[in-house]
Amino acid sequence: MQLRRAQGFTLIELIMVMVVMAIITIGIGRFVSLGTEGYLQTRDREQLQSQARFAVERVARELRNAVPNSLKITNNGQCLSFKPIQFSGDYSNQSLTDITAIIGYVTQTATPVFQPQMRLVINPHKAQDFDVASDQVATVTAINKGAVANQWQFELDGQHSFDSGSLAQRFYTYTHSVTFCIEGNSLTHTTIDNAGSQSQPVLIAQYIDSSLSMFSIDNAALARSALVAWQFTFTRNGESSRYNHTVQVMNAP
């Protein structure tokens, strides 16, 4: 009687199969790893650029509503401050000497509403024109309807004489100032009301390189309005995005 020989794999065959499977597994794992890394890098890059675009647009949008010549750079170009317009319009006063109210028409369609610490400025040309002691600014105590349609009367805190008038007879009111600051690796937004109370900084953007980012101002001239420029460099995980932006503040005194 002939014995049947047992069927199976030899040890060498098993080892060869294990080696081949290991090579295949490593190859697949590396392929998946590269795909995952590529996805994460693309996601981080898109988040960084999206954040950068938002920061640039936020600063530009708020700057377009700045009271003329209220722009100020501090902290070696790391901070930009300005006073946003609350109401603006054309005054009809024949004289700006010893008056108790500014009478005029506002450009906004909404009814002007009085707010505490509201100030009114006429023909500002420098930062000192916004000081409380300046003859170009006065505190508003109430807003009343004028004698004719769409006319408003901005009551002042006593008798006031403005040092100079506006060629276009413009006036502006404001209640606070806004400051954008590059602090560490962040861009923040802060408001300070006319009474001096400061809000908590609001985070606008992260991953900003403060050594490569700054604000600058080219002040207004007779031929054009003020130009505000800023350079923002965002860096994250080896990715770097640089943004150079310039905004012309169209509002004129």
Rank of each mutant, 00 (worst) to 15 (best):
A205G: 07
Y174P: 02
G29I: 12
N244Y: 05
G196Y: 02
V113A: 13
V17K: 00
G158S: 04
V228C: 08
F154Y: 05
F87E: 06
Y39A: 13
Q49P: 00
A6T: 09
F130E: 08
T190C: 03
S70T: 08
S50D: 13
Q94H: 11
H125I: 10
S134L: 09
N244S: 03
T141Y: 04
G146T: 04
M18W: 07
R53T: 11
M118E: 05
G165M: 01
N123T: 00
E183A: 14
D218E: 14
L34V: 13
G165S: 04
L187F: 01
M21D: 01
P201H: 11
N185L: 10
L71D: 15
S199R: 05
F162Q: 01
Y105Q: 05
R30C: 09
G8N: 12
L96H: 00
A22Q: 06
T188A: 08
S161Y: 02
Q136C: 04
L34T: 14
L156P: 02
P112Y: 09
A229Y: 06
I192E: 12
D98F: 07
T141P: 04
N219R: 11
M214V: 05
N185D: 15
K126T: 13
L11E: 07
A229L: 10
F130R: 08
Q51T: 13
R170E: 06
I24C: 14
A221T: 15
T246A: 02
P116M: 12
H245R: 12
P112V: 01
N194M: 09
V59G: 06
A138K: 08
Q153V: 11
E183K: 14
A55C: 12
M16N: 10
L187V: 08
S164I: 03
A101D: 12
E155A: 15
T97D: 09
V148T: 15
L80T: 02
A133L: 13
P112Q: 02
V32S: 15
F215M: 12
S186R: 15
N251C: 00
T139C: 09
G35F: 15
M214H: 15
M250L: 14
L96S: 00
T109D: 10
R45I: 00
I73N: 06
R61M: 04
R242G: 00
G89D: 02
T109N: 14
E239P: 00
T42N: 11
L71R: 11
F180C: 05
R242Q: 07
H160P: 00
I23N: 05
C181T: 09
L203M: 15
Q7G: 03
V20Y: 06
L227C: 05
V140S: 06
Q136K: 12
S216L: 04
Y207G: 05
I85Y: 09
N123C: 08
Q206L: 08
V20I: 14
S225E: 06
T141R: 07
Y243S: 03
M1R: 09
L80H: 06
D129H: 13
Q108F: 00
F234W: 10
A101H: 07
L167Q: 11
S88R: 14
Y91D: 01
P201N: 10
N93Q: 04
L96K: 00
S161M: 07
G184L: 05
A168M: 10
A138D: 05
V56F: 06
